[in-house]
Structure formats: C-alpha cells, structure tokens
C-alpha cells in the first residue's frame, strides 16, 4: 500500500514539473519562436530555409517528404535499416525449424480451412476481405507513388501494403497468406528495398558527387535540371522504403502469430 502511495506521489510530482516546464514553451505555431525564426544575432533558422527554398530546390510540394528523403536522406536510410534489423531480430529469436512440434498447438486455430469457400463459418469475413484487399493494396501503392505530392510516402504505404497481407492471414489462415507472400519473397523484398535506397546513394557517388546527392542523377533521368532529378530520386527511394517495410511487417506478424513455426497462425 505504502509503495502505491509513494509511486502515485512520484508520478504527480513529475507530472507537475513537466507541466511547469511547458509554461516556458512558445505558443503553438508562433512564427517568432527560436525554432521557426532562429536565434537573434545567430544563424537564421533551418526551418525557414526549408519552407522558402525546398520547392525551388526539389520541385516537391510535400515539405515533409523532401526533408525526409532528400535533405535528411541519410537518416531515413538508416531508419529503414533499423526496420530491417527488427525483422532480422524477430527471425533470429522466434523462428523454429523443427518438424516435430513440442509446443502446444494454438487452440484458436481450426484445421483444414485454408480456403475461404470451404469454411462456411468464415464466409462473410472471407468474402469481405476478398473484396476489400485489392482496394487496400491499390491505396497503398497510391500512397507510395504520390507520397512526394500529398501526405504519405514509403513508410505509410509499406505498412498499409503489409497490413493487406496480414488481413488475408487473419481472415483465412496463415498458410493462405504465405502461399501468396512466402518467407523467401518477403525477406528478399525487404533486402531489395534497402539495396534500392543504398543503390541511389552509390549511383550518385559513381557519377562523381556525394552519397545520396540526387541532383547529379539528371544525367540518368535526362531531366532539364537537378531539381526534377531530385524529385524522381525521392520517388525511387520511397519505393525502396516501401519494399522493406512491407516485407518486415508481414514477417513480424507471421513469426509472432505462429510462434515461429509459420504453420498454424491465428
């Protein structure tokens, strides 16, 4: 009892201190705050530069994508690598290759309903999923392909595309989803995604510039200036990110739901 009182006291004091600290924050969206306007007498703020110059630099209307995929492209590449490493860790920890299964079989799983039509108790869910999944996948591809013109991009589109396969696994059976998107293909897709991203960087180096300095790719894309080359390269690296995220999201689900056997899922 006394520990609970002490814990509550600690939480309340910490919360009060945090609230007291927020009193010094500038107002929401204040154009004169140090983050937006820069420090007086110091260098001008970098956010001002992005807001005024990024469209001229890259011809990408979505400021967030141009910062993430171009100005901070090196960060985003290693974020993608982190996702890939998460998938590898899940594989290393959970995946089991034994044939004889000494783990208890999952009680929620019923045998022999690999296909939607064979199982009448799942016919409503199965039919709905079969109608909805193509729309979800089309939307995911739109989010990836249109990410530099509207909200979205590789991460979001990749997650939605991975979720469409998870929906198939949830509505029917893990085996059914794996027959469409096997272990070999999702890990290959994840690795190819990073290869595409890093490939854009190396290609810039080959053409005599810095790593991930997309402007030099105008010799390959045959655009008028470096701006459109940067726009096209952003689309390219977003596709790479989407590949990795799609593969790893489904890999995590498949390994978690079947306890690493990839046989009897949820």
């Amino acid at each position: 009892m006394i520990t609970k009182v002490l814990a509550t006291l600690a939480v309340v004091i910490t919360g009060a201190l945090l609230l007291y600290g927020t009193a010094d924050f500038p107002a929401f969206g204040d154009p004169h705050s140090p983050a937006s306007a820069g420090v007086e007498g110091g260098a001008p703020s970098i956010s001002q530069y992005y807001i005024t110059e990024s469209y001229g630099d890259t011809k990408v209307p979505n400021l967030v994508t141009s910062v993430l995929a171009d100005y901070r492209g090196y960060d985003t590449m290693f974020e993608t690598v982190v996702i890939f490493a998460a998938g590898m860790a899940i594989f290393a920890i959970l995946r089991v290759f034994r044939d004889e299964d000494d783990l208890e079989p999952n009680p929620t799983h019923t045998q022999g309903d690999r296909f939607i039509d064979g199982d009448h108790s799942r016919i409503i869910v199965g039919t709905t999923v079969r109608l909805v999944v193509p729309v979800i996948q089309l939307f995911a591809l739109y989010v990836v392909a249109h990410g530099h013109h509207s909200p979205g991009g590789g991460f979001q589109g990749g997650v939605i595309l991975g979720a469409s396969f998870i929906i198939i696994a949830l509505a029917t059976d893990l085996g059914n989803a794996l027959s469409r998107f096997s272990e070999k293909s999702y890990f290959t897709l994840a690795a190819v995604g990073i290869l595409i991203y890093a490939g854009f960087g190396v290609l810039c180096q080959v053409l005599g510039s810095d790593f991930l300095d997309y402007g030099v790719l105008q010799k390959i894309f045959l655009t008028d200036g470096p701006e459109m080359a940067r726009s096209h390269s952003m689309l390219g690296v977003e596709v790479g990110v989407a590949f990795t995220v799609t593969g790893i999201m489904f890999a995590i689900y498949a390994n978690l739901s079947s306890r690493g056997t990839l046989k009897s899922g949820l």
Binding site: V143, P151, G152, F155, V159, I160
Partner: peptide, 9 residues
C-alpha cells in the same frame, strides 16, 4: 504526415 503514420502504425 505524422497523423497518417500514426493511423497506419
């Protein structure tokens, strides 16, 4: 963009 990521992830 952040809202979109939060909705998906």
């Amino acid at each position: 963009d952040v809202a979109f990521t939060e909705a998906a992830v």
